[in-house]
Design a protein around this nucleic acid. Structure first.
Lengths: 153, 153
DNA sequence: TTGATAATGAAAATCATTTTCAATAAGGTT
DNA sequence: AACCTTATTGAAAATGATTTTCATTATCAA
């Protein structure tokens, strides 16, 4: 029985990976949040749903999801990665980030994403062809000093 | 004697930081390369120039440079950060990255940066005002699967 | 020249992530 | 429905980049 169920399971199957309980649980967690969760955040929620799930599996699953293009990983510079569904029905629209290099706080913004769309699509298509690269998604980060840290100087 | 010498020293001074030997050495190294160097890469070059420099100081200095807006830090997902001067006379023009989520290889590109400029400037200015945030620089990363990893599937 | 203190280096500590390996489970095949 | 191959899992140990500690040194304003 091939390619049944939700999109991410089809994707797993297409790549020859199995659809397991931990993978379902982790996908559910990602679908139910709008935040950037760390591996440990996800692990804690997962254990809550099924105590047998191990942290190692959470790491492996997130990595796998990144490789099949259903999850995106962020590194904001605080030493731990964050993960988010690339296409999330519950999530607010496509957004980007302001990152404070001092306190490491993140501000999400979704202004200009509309105006950005055309340029990014065009760039994505050209780069994709030029380098024979399958592009899953993109991120834009602005780095600087936030309001609070400016004050504290 | 205030605000003498190169720009980065002025910047240090403005923030109340001292201009020390390790900081000079590390700045020289960053100026002489066009690559994304890890802290250890920089440490090895630094030790070559002055054996008394410690790895700890390299980390501290790079962090400081990021906070005063003269260096930018990249996290490509391989567990170690890379650093690069924000404004580098020897460096190729402003560029962005294609990151392979499988083999972690990075492709630099500088196509479209001209077309991008206007939108990013406008976005930067608006965000900066809206959130009272001093923006030092931005990055754009495209994530996906590279030519080689597609073949290996 | 001097004094206050920011900055440094070495060693130890931290902590997110990865590896190892034996046990388990998914899913195609009888 | 039982079976087999092998992908997947969990626990514990290992890894490795980065940070902390703390006594010493060096910067720079006075």
């Amino acid at each position: 029985m091939r390619n049944r169920g939700p999109l991410w399971q089809k994707r797993l199957d297409d790549f020859g990976f199995r659809s397991t309980m931990p993978r379902k649980v982790i996908m559910d967690i990602l679908r139910q949040t709008m935040e950037h969760l760390s591996a440990e955040d996800i692990y804690l929620k997962a254990v809550n749903m099924n105590p047998s799930i191990g942290l190692t599996t959470v790491y492996r699953t997130l990595d796998l999801f990144c490789q099949i293009g259903v999850v995106q990983r962020f590194d904001f510079g605080d030493g731990k990665a964050r993960y988010e569904l690339i296409s999330n029905p519950n999530k607010k629209e496509h957004h980007h980030h302001l990152v404070c290099v001092k306190c490491r706080n993140i501000i999400d913004y979704s202004d200009f994403v509309h105006e950005e769309q055309e340029l990014m699509d065009k760039t994505e298509q050209s780069l994709s062809q030029k380098h024979n690269f399958d592009i899953f998604h993109h991120i834009i980060h602005f780095y600087g000093i936030c309001k609070d840290c400016k004050g504290a100087a």
